[in-house]
Simulated assay, not measured.
Amino acid sequence: MRWLSAEEQRIWRGFMTAVTTFSEHLDRQLQRDAGMPMAYYEILVALSETPGRALRMSELAMMCHSSRSRLSHAVAKLEKEGWVVRRACPSDRRGSIAELTDEGFAVLEAAAPGHVTTVREHLFDVLTPEQLRALDGISRAISAGLSTECDRARAEVPEF
């Protein structure tokens, strides 16, 4: 067992505090200004950026880094709002596809400016260009270090 040194512990806690606090701030802003949590916004964005504004639920879960049950619950809420519709996958009846509605796209368009402003003010405007480049490299390194484990976990989850 390799325990964290005092400096590593300080860095770890600072990183976790920054990530958690920033995520909570983004979630509060979206709840206040758009009436939706960050998770719903991420689903709408993912759908808006795909051809036909539609994705198989399994692909959407991967893109949103969500479990099947959490995504299914969120999509059900988005369906009730009229922002997303779910339909059977034509190539595989076991699967389903989530599609962004015009109303959902309009809600996303209305929410995006406030969200982008918040991201800009609390991330890009507080870091120097050198810090942003370092953050990019750090983010890529962390993601690359986790990609094999994430790929293995995804392979164990059946399609839906």
Rank of each mutant, 00 (worst) to 15 (best):
W83R: 08
E103Q: 10
A46K: 01
R87A: 08
A112L: 12
E103L: 13
M62N: 13
F105T: 01
R70E: 15
D136K: 12
L60H: 03
M36P: 08
A106H: 07
L146P: 00
H73N: 11
R68K: 02
R154T: 12
L100W: 00
R2S: 01
G52Y: 03
Q29S: 13
V119F: 09
S69M: 13
I142A: 05
S23F: 13
A111K: 08
F124T: 06
S5F: 05
F160Y: 01
A106P: 02
R56T: 02
A88F: 03
E149H: 07
L135I: 01
A61G: 05
L60G: 05
K77N: 13
A61V: 03
Y41W: 10
F124M: 06
A76T: 14
A111G: 10
Q131F: 06
P113D: 00
L135C: 00
R140S: 09
R94Y: 04
L26Q: 12
G137A: 07
T21M: 13
R70P: 12
A18P: 11
M16L: 15
T21G: 10
C150Y: 10
E7D: 14
R93T: 06
S91R: 06
P113V: 02
V19E: 00
E130M: 01
D27H: 11
E8I: 08
V157R: 01
C64H: 05
T17Q: 15
R87Q: 09
H122D: 04
E24Y: 13
R152H: 11
R10G: 10
I43A: 01
E99T: 10
R32H: 09
I138L: 14
I97R: 09
G82H: 00
R70C: 15
S23Q: 15
A6E: 14
E149F: 05
V19W: 00
T117K: 14
V107P: 01
K80W: 09
S58I: 04
G104Q: 06
L71Y: 04
H25L: 14
S67W: 01
G145M: 04
I43L: 03
F124C: 06
T117L: 12
A144Y: 00
L71H: 04
R154D: 14
T20M: 14
H115G: 07
A134V: 08
V85L: 14
F160H: 06
Q29I: 13
A112H: 12
H115D: 03
V126W: 05
R10M: 11
F105R: 04
A153E: 05
C150G: 08
R32L: 06
A111D: 06
L78A: 00
R93I: 05
E59K: 14
L127W: 11
A134S: 05
Y41A: 11
W83T: 09
T118D: 06
D125A: 15
F124H: 04
L135W: 00
I11T: 09
G137Q: 04
M63Y: 14
S66K: 08
R53A: 11
L127G: 09
A110Q: 01
A144D: 02
V116F: 14
M1N: 09
P90C: 08
E81C: 15
